[in-house]
Structures are given as structure tokens and as C-alpha cells.
Amino acid sequence: MSDVLEVRDLCLRFRGYSGMSEVLHGISLNVRAGERVALVGESGSGKSVTARIVLGLLQELPSAQVDGGLFFEGEDLNRLSRRQWQALRGTSISMIFQDPTSSLNPVFTIGTQFAEVLRRRDPKLSREAADERAGTLLQSVSIHDHARVLSAYPFQLSGGMNQRVVIAMALANHPSLLIADEPGTALDVTVQAQTLKLMHDLVERSGTAVLFISHNLGVVREFADRVFVIYRGRIVEQGPTPAIFEDPGHAYTRALMAAVPRITGGGLPELNDSESAFLDPMVVHEGGKA
């Protein structure tokens, strides 16, 4: 299968605060059509910035310096004009941002914002038709009182309801690449299972490629085909999901696995201080590379 997304040797530096700070030190990863790839790792290691670079958002920030290859469906994203890149967002590439509430506009109702999303693909869509489609999509993320939700402002909804609205919006235009940054954090486990199934179906049905960022290793184990583990701006391990979970090779991955709180109890995990080993070279499992 061909790559829908390929990121090659991506570097990122920020100017400011305390001089130059290097955030990404040459990240490479790929997602094929119909594949679910998880990016997991340390808080602050560079997951969200990687996603924003793929969308072309960080490049607009004057203090950010981005280098490296970015390819979407074989096309070199770096050669697109700003307008062409923008046109991909919300249509062929869609993104679920980490904080659902701040990715919605506080002064417009959900219905208005949903119509705008749907019109990116279908500019002549009437408001009635948009509300009807939005209602169906909200139903699929377990929002059953969709009339109330469509006429509500984000502050009138719960954290998890806003998150589901954002998920429904991201799936609305049948993207070929979906980037989901922590999509289930405000959902109870039964609703979470249902949204994962929805994303799963989308992948099966339309061959969507999913880049899935998550701290929930239980979800990653159940959802992802392949996993990339990131620590301080470097990929430290990559491979098919079963290999990563059954045979983690890198010291950081092992420490992560050991720190997962267990539903069977046993108290908080002991923290081992083998942090110097976290900088060891990358571990690649068979089948992990395209």
C-alpha cells in the first residue's frame, strides 16, 4: 500500500524565551492508506507540533523554523502555496485538535460551525440540509439530543460533548488523512469505544489513513496497527502494535509500559530513574518500516 502521509527527517526549532530551542530532531514516520498509526510518548515531546506541521499551521508562526520532507498522497506539501495547503485542511486532511473547547468558536452555535465545515466540501449546501447531515453525524457519536446540541454554544455543552462535536466534524468530509490528537480524553469508556469503532469503520470503508496521538496505551493497543514511540523530539521505537506491546525494546518504551496504571489495582507504579537510557538509539521492529 502506498503512503498517504510521509514525514521525512523533520526538524523544528523555536526562537525566543531562552534563545533557540530544538524541539524535533529529525522525525520520520509514515501512514499508509487504510492504516491506523499511533504516535505515543512523553508530554512535551513533539506530538502536537508534528501534527500542526503536517497541516501547515506551524510554518505560519514567525518564531518557528521547520525543515524536512512532507508528502501527502505522493505530493510534496512544501511546494504547495499557502492557499493550496489551506484548501486541503478540513477536506482531504482533517484534524481533531487536543483541546476540543478551544478549537470551537465560542460565539457561534454548534449548528452554524457545523454548516461551515460541511460547506468546505459542498459550498451550496442549505442550512436545513446541513443540520440534517450534522444531526446524523452527531447521532453516530452517541449524541442523541442533537437538536439541542446544534442550537447550543460550546459553553453550554460538557467537555465530552464538545469533543464529540469536533470528532463528528472531522469525519464529516470523508478525509483521506485524519489526524486525531488525544480524541478520547473527555469521553467515558463506553462512548469512547463507540467513537473508536466509528473511526475504525471509516478506515475499513473509505481507506482513510489515521494518525492517532494518545497517552492511553490501552486504547492504542486496541486501535492501532502500528506504533511510533517519541521521546524528546526523537522516535525511539517503532513497529507493529503487538510487537511493541509484547516485546518493547527501548528503555523508554519499557518504562512507559511499566507505568500504566492497572484496573486490577496494585498502587501507583514505582518510577525508575534510568532516564539516561531513554536517549539510546531507535529500536525498529520487523514490519515497522514501510
Binding site: 505515543v40 510518548g41 512523553e42 508530554s43 487536543q98 467537555g159 488525544e182 480524553t185 473527555a186 497517552h215 496505551l217 518504562a255 512507559l256 507505568a259 500504566v260 496504571p261 501507583l268 507504579p269 518510577l271
Partner: peptide, 21 residues
Amino acid sequence: LDEPTSALDVLVQARVLRLLE
């Protein structure tokens, strides 16, 4: 604490939970 550790990796989460403890 309303979802205080939802955006933390499990190692940082363990550290924060220990602090609370």
C-alpha cells in the same frame, strides 16, 4: 480536579499522582 491527567503520559502522570498523594 476535573480530568487533571488526561493530557499526561503515564510516567508524568505517575509523578503528578504521587505529588497529590
